[in-house]
Every structure is written in structure tokens, then in C-alpha cells.
Amino acid sequence: MKNIHKSPWLLHYDGSSCNGCDIEVLACTTPVYDVERFGVVNTGNPMHADIFLITGGINSQNEDVVKQIYEQMPGPKVVVAVGTCACTGGIFKECYNIKGGVDTVIPVDIYVPGCAARPESIIDGVVKAVALFQEKHDKKKRKERAAKS
């Protein structure tokens, strides 16, 4: 954690989850778990966000919404799939309206399994996402510097 200098902001979107993971994501931001101590702030605006937390699988109606939110986010960005449904489709995989996990529409960096994913594992995922975000950020900066010189 020592080399992290940025405070990444987090955006949460409920794909087609059962709410179980959503309320655990929200629980992470409240006093008992408190991800704000890692500098992570929960935002509602995709344009402000660096980390995209998505719960639940992809269905035909929310597919475009997820893609749109992903495109609206400025780079570099990290996508975290929270819960078994977001990873693979989970228990709803065989439902007629579920296309599968989040990685069927957008690239996913970190998978957090669990039904419902526990706050501890979500925080673990977010901490990994913060580190990955820093890495992507540094890479981008190096590239920009190289392009300048």
C-alpha cells in the first residue's frame, strides 16, 4: 500500500444481481468495513470513477448500459466483478435471459467470487484493484513521457 499516491473513486452498478452483493458492497463503505481508509470514495458518476464494481450477470437489457458506463469512464480504469453471478453467471447461468458473466461484454481485471461475496473479499478485491490502477496509471504516464521525448 505504501506506493499508492492516488485516491481511486469507485462506481457501483447492479447488473442483474439479487441485491446480496450490492448491499455487501454498500456495507464496505460503512463504519464496520470502511474502504474509505484506502482512499476509495463511492461515487455515482461514471465520469468521476476509476474503479468499476459490477455485481450480477449480464442480460439483454443491461448489456448496453454496462458498455456505456464502461466507455464513459476515463482511462486508466479497473473493472472488478463482484459475486459469482458477475464472474460466471452463477446460479442464474441457465436462465433464458442471462448471457453470462460480465466478461462477456467488457474486459474484467479482478474477479471476486462468493454468493453473496463477503465484505472482506470485496475489500481484498478493491485493494488489488487500487494496486492495479496505480500500475496502469504509471504505465500510462511512462508512455506519455516517452512520447514527449
Binding site: 442483474s16 442480460n59 437489457q61 443491461n62 442464474f92 436462465c95 435471459n97
Partner: peptide, 11 residues
């Protein structure tokens, strides 16, 4: 509505 529809009754 329909953004969270999974169709679990069909399971």
C-alpha cells in the same frame, strides 16, 4: 423495468 430480469421462475 427489466434491467434486472433473469427469468429465474423458468429454472
Amino acid at each position: 423495468i427489466g434491467y434486472v430480469h433473469r427469468g429465474l421462475e423458468s429454472l
